[in-house]
Design a protein around this nucleic acid. Structure first.
Lengths: 268, 268
DNA sequence: CGTCAGTTTGAGCGAGCTCAACGTGAGTGG
DNA sequence: CCACTCACGTTGAGCTCGCTCAAACTGACG
C-alpha cells in the first residue's frame, strides 16, 4: 500500500497551471484574478479541472457536466454549505477556499470528519440517505460548485467513465476514512499532527502551491477535534516541533523546515 | 441523525425467514440445512436475500444478478478471501459465518477495519484502486458469495435501482466509518465495547437470531484492535460489565442481561 | 479602550497502556 | 490416556501520555 496515499492526500491531481491569487499592496484580491469569482468560471477553464470531476472526462463530456454544475456567490467564513438534516440534493466541489465537514451528535458535540481544499469533492455522506448526515461550513472565503446528485447519477449512466470515476471517489473516501481510523487507534499526538501537516503540504504541492510554506485554514480546535486531541495538546505539539526545528509556526502560518523528519514521524 | 444507524448496524434488513442451523446431537451441521452449502443456493432462495444486494431488486433482476454471482466452497477459519495487494476483481457477500477485514501497514501492524456478518457486503475498499487495500479472512467456517465487480458495474448501468442501491451501500460505508472515527476520538473503553455489543446484538436480531445471547466470532485481540484498545483493557471491561450484571460472559459466549443499560452507555 | 475568540503554557491527574504472571482449553504426539 | 504445547484470556502493579483545569497572552474588532 502506498504510504502517501493517505486520508488527506488525494492523488486525483495531474499538472495544472494554478497560481496563487495576486494581491494588491493592501492585500485585497484583485477583481480580474479573483479565485472566488462565480460568474466567469466554467468547468472547462476552471483551474481545478485537472483535480476535480472533469479529470475523468473528454472535452465534450466536460461540457455536459459543466451544464449541470451550479455556481453560487462566494461564501464567507462560517457560512454553511449544507446543514445535517437538510434534504440531500447535491454534492459539492471546492473551487477556492477551504471547507470543514462535521457531524453533531445528540449531545451537541461536534466531530470534524474532513477538511476539503480546492479541487476536492465533498458531501458524499448524503448519498445513501434522504437527508445530509454531516454539515459543511466554509473555513474562509470560498467558492463552491454545486452538482445536483440526481443529474450526476443520470449522467453517470450515460458516461461510464464518470460512473467509474465516481465509484472511485467514494471508495477513496472509504479507504481514507479507514486510514484515519488506524491513526486514531494507534498513533501518538505527534504522529497525528505530522500526518496532517504532510498531507496538507502534499495537497498544496499538487495544486502547484508551496508545499513548505502555507496557511492552515482551520483553527487549533478544529485540528484537535479532527485528530482526536485537545486544543492544548495540538498547541504543545506545534511548540515542540518548533523547538526541534521541524516547523516554524506563526499562528496559522506554517513553514515546514524539515519535511523528511515530519514524513518519517507520519509514516506508520 | 438516528442514533442506532451506527457503523455496524446495517438497516438493509427486511423480514426474512432465517433460522439458526439445526444441529444433530453430536453438534455436526446437518447436510440438508447446512448454511455453508455452496451448490444448492442461489440468490432467489438464499436466506439473506432480504438483507443483501437483492433487496433492491425485482424477481427478474435478482435472476440476472444471480447469474453473475460465484459461490465457492466453504472457507475454514483463518482462510483468506483476498489479500491486500491482490488485483481487485470482486466484491463479496457473507452468506454464513463471519469475516474480518483489515489492513497491514509497512511495519506489519494490523488494523481491523470491520467485521462482516451474514447478509453484509465487503471488499468495497478495492473499488477505487487496481489492487485490494485491505485483506479479509474468515473468522469461522464461512460461505461467501463473490460478485465480479466489472459485471456488477455493467449490470448497474442497466438496472438503475441497483446502481442507486450500490451508491447507497458505499455511502453507508462512509458514514459508518465516520461514526467509528467519532467513537475512537471521543469515547471511553466502556462506551466502545458497549457500542460493539449493541451493534452485534442488533445485527443478530435483524437476522432473526437472538439479540441477547450470541457467540462473538472474533477474539479479544481483534476487538481491541478494532476499537483502539489493548487486549487487557477489553478483558477488563468485559469483567467489569459482568460484575455490574450487564453481561454474562463465558469466553466468546455472551449473554446481554441489561440491554437498556448497555444501550445508554453506547449512546454518544 | 475593553471585549472576546483563539492560542499558549503550566501543574496535576487519571484512563488506559506496558510488563509480567498465571489460568484455561483445544490440539498433538507419545 | 496423559503430558506437553500453544494460543488465548484474565488479573495485577506501576507508569505515561494526553486530558483537565487554570491562568495569561495575542490580535481583531467595536
Amino acid at each position: 500500500m502506498p504510504t502517501d496515499d493517505i486520508r488527506w492526500i488525494d492523488d486525483r491531481g495531474r499538472d495544472n497551471d494554478y497560481n496563487p491569487p495576486e494581491l494588491n499592496p493592501r492585500g485585497i484580491i484583485m477583481e480580474a484574478k479573483c479565485p472566488h469569482s462565480a460568474t466567469t468560471v466554467n468547468c472547462n477553464d476552471c483551474r481545478m479541472s485537472a483535480l476535480c470531476l472533469p479529470m475523468a472526462l473528454q472535452a465534450d463530456e466536460i461540457d455536459r457536466l459543466n451544464r449541470i454544475v451550479e455556481r453560487g456567490r462566494p461564501l464567507q467564513r462560517n457560512e454553511y454549505i449544507y446543514h445535517a438534516g437538510e434534504p440531500f440534493k447535491s454534492i459539492y466541489a471546492v473551487r477556492s477556499g477551504a471547507v470543514k465537514g462535521f457531524t453533531v451528535n445528540d449531545e451537541g458535540v461536534e466531530q470534524v470528519t474532513g477538511f476539503y481544499l480546492p479541487g476536492e469533492i465533498f458531501g458524499m455522506d448524503g448519498i445513501g440517505h434522504p437527508n445530509h448526515i454531516n454539515s459543511a461550513v466554509a473555513l474562509e472565503t470560498a467558492a463552491i460548485c454545486e452538482i445536483p446528485f440526481s443529474r450526476l447519477e443520470e449522467l453517470s449512466t450515460q458516461i461510464p467513465s464518470l460512473q467509474r470515476h465516481f465509484f472511485r471517489l467514494m471508495s477513496r473516501e472509504i479507504t481514507n476514512d479507514q486510514q484515519l481510523i488506524t491513526m486514531l487507534s494507534k498513533n501518538s499526538a505527534e504522529e497525528r499532527i505530522a500526518t496532517l501537516l504532510t498531507s496538507i503540504s502534499a495537497r498544496n504541492a499538487r495544486r502547484k502551491l508551496s508545499g513548505s510554506r502555507f496557511r492552515l485554514p482551520m483553527s487549533r480546535a478544529d485540528i484537535g477535534n479532527y485528530m482526536g486531541l485537545t486544543v492544548e495538546t495540538v498547541s504543545r505539539v506545534f511548540s515542540r516541533f518548533q523547538k526541534q526545528d521541524i516547523l516554524s509556526v506563526d499562528k496559522k502560518e506554517i513553514e515546514i523546515l524539515d519535511l523528511d523528519r515530519l514524513r518519517s514521524m507520519a509514516n506508520t
